[in-house]
Nucleic acid binder design. Structure first.
Length: 216
DNA sequence: CGTTCGATGCACT
DNA sequence: GTGCATCGAACGT
């Protein structure tokens, strides 16, 4: 069952932490794809220079001011869609960016989507890399502007607790890819997880949450 | 190993 | 016109 709106109607950092280990699901006519959330970032309010709400209410960022529990999807760098879960009350602009997933359902479909446009065969895509990074996960799940403002408690794009929640460590650090707002440790992730984005400096263990992905 | 840089489109000033 | 909540290939050390 999708998480209720009340889950998102809380302080954004709490929502960010609690989203780790949850399942993000996208259902389309092509099939169902999902993965466990292993990396997120919080963007909180007009006083956060990295938040899209920093310049105040604009045409693009209106979803941030809307009710909690809806998707905020936007297009970036001319080629990537990024998906957020809107948090906190109406008129309190904040959201959690979903940055990486451990693929669970529809892995073949993810590979097919990732291969689209490239000359590479779908089979050449590493499973751990399918949803590593915010641009990669939206491509694998087929999330684009059509999914902007969707109800995350709905039937098409939603977040739910997995059947069996795995145990995992959690770490906080500065947000990635920004020129401002890097002093806040508002990136939350599963340390050492093979699907988390960023520089993989040490060849640490890198264990998955679930040993074998289920399909249904 | 590390860092740089091109692709690519649009919101915002 | 500028600058992105990116990605990965290509380069340098």
């Amino acid at each position: 069952m999708p998480l209720p709106h009340a889950f998102y109607d809380r302080p954004t950092l709490d929502v960010a932490r609690d989203l780790i280990g949850k399942s993000l699901v996208h259902v389309t006519s092509a099939g169902r794809t999902s993965g466990l959330i292993v990396e997120v970032e919080a963007y909180i309010g007009e006083s956060d220079p990295a938040c899209h709400a920093a310049p105040g209410r604009t045409k693009r960022n209106v979803p941030l001011y809307g009710p909690p529990g809806i998707a905020y999807v936007y297009f970036n760098y001319g080629m990537h869609y990024l998906v957020n879960a809107v948090t906190e009350a109406v008129d309190s602009p904040a959201a959690v960016l979903i940055r990486a997933l451990e693929p669970v359902e529809g892995i073949a479909l993810m590979r097919k989507r990732r291969a689209r446009g490239t000359g590479k065969p779908a089979a050449s895509f590493d499973q751990n890399g399918l949803c590593r990074g915010p641009g990669n996960l939206t491509k694998s799940l087929g999330i684009a502007l059509a999914q902007n403002r969707l109800d995350l408690a709905g039937a098409e794009l939603f977040i739910e607790a997995p059947l069996v929640d795995p145990a995992f460590p959690i770490a906080w650090g500065p947000r990635i890819g920004l020129n401002v707002g890097t002093e806040q440790a508002w990136r939350c992730y599963v340390p050492g997880h093979p699907c988390v984005s960023g520089k993989s400096t040490k060849p640490k263990p890198r264990r998955r949450l679930v040993a074998v992905a289920s399909t249904r």
